[in-house]
């Protein structure tokens, strides 16, 4: 059996099953949808075993040079606590694991987000608006004013009336342009995926049909 052709046919059939939803909901779509959910779940479980549990837990607990690091039993116990949620009698133990994930996640994200999303963005906005040509100056002013007025719009502790309201209105305008641009970009990203699937069907799958039927090369 030619594994390459089998792979192409599997991909093509599943692609067509999923696209059949464009007509309406039907058994072919439901089949592919359920298969996708199951296989994706299986993929992520194996991914976490291979990329997280093996290198970050098992190999730390049992190093290659021998020995046993008992300290790595602790995350194993917390992981079991997380799984305890499926047994109603001991489901409360999962709160310990949740507490640990939430605490560590909050600690990491608090400083991480502040550094990368707040400070770095503020730093990037502190620019010389008078550098470059006329168009650069206009662009820089729009950038700085856009960030400041956008932030005023998101500041809900003060009523959006008077000067605050007018500034917030400028912010909404900039945000609408930004959301429009992001939306257009997202649509085009999806369209490029669609083109990719169509190219697969036309240039990879269709040429295999004559080969299978023994017609042509």
């Amino acid at each position: 059996m030619n594994w390459e052709i089998l792979g192409i046919w599997l991909g093509a059939m599943l692609t067509l099953c999923l696209y059949s939803f464009l007509y309406r909901d039907n058994p072919f779509y439901k089949f592919a949808e359920h298969l996708f959910v199951g296989m994706s779940a299986g993929y992520w479980v194996i991914y976490s075993i291979e990329n997280v549990l093996k290198p970050n837990w098992w190999q730390q607990m049992f190093p290659e040079d021998g020995g046993f690091n008992w300290i790595w039993i602790i995350p194993g116990i917390f992981a079991l606590f997380m799984l305890a949620r499926i047994i109603p009698k001991i489901a409360g133990l999962s709160r310990m694991a949740l507490g640990m994930i939430i605490g560590a996640g909050a600690g990491v994200n608090m400083v991480g987000f502040f550094q990368t999303n707040a400070m770095a963005q503020v730093k990037g906005t502190i620019i010389s608006v008078s550098s470059g040509g006329a168009w650069d100056i206009i662009s820089n002013i729009i950038l700085v004013v856009g960030v400041i007025t956008g932030l005023v719009y998101f500041f809900f502790s003060k009523a959006h009336t008077g000067i605050v309201g007018k500034t917030a209105n400028v912010g909404i305008t900039i945000l609408m342009v930004a959301f429009g641009a992001s939306f257009g970009y997202t649509i085009m990203a999806r369209i490029s995926l669609l083109i990719g699937r169509c190219q697969f069907l036309i240039f990879d799958w269709i040429p295999t049909i004559p080969r299978l039927l023994g017609i042509g090369g």
Binding site: A106, G107, N109, M110, A118, V147, A178
Partner: peptide, 28 residues
Amino acid sequence: MTIPNTAGQRAVMIGAAMGVVSTSLRMI
């Protein structure tokens, strides 16, 4: 993409970062 979009996204990111900081502190 580089001027109005960056300005809007920056405002959203800074606002979201403030939200993350305050929510994280509330959780901790």
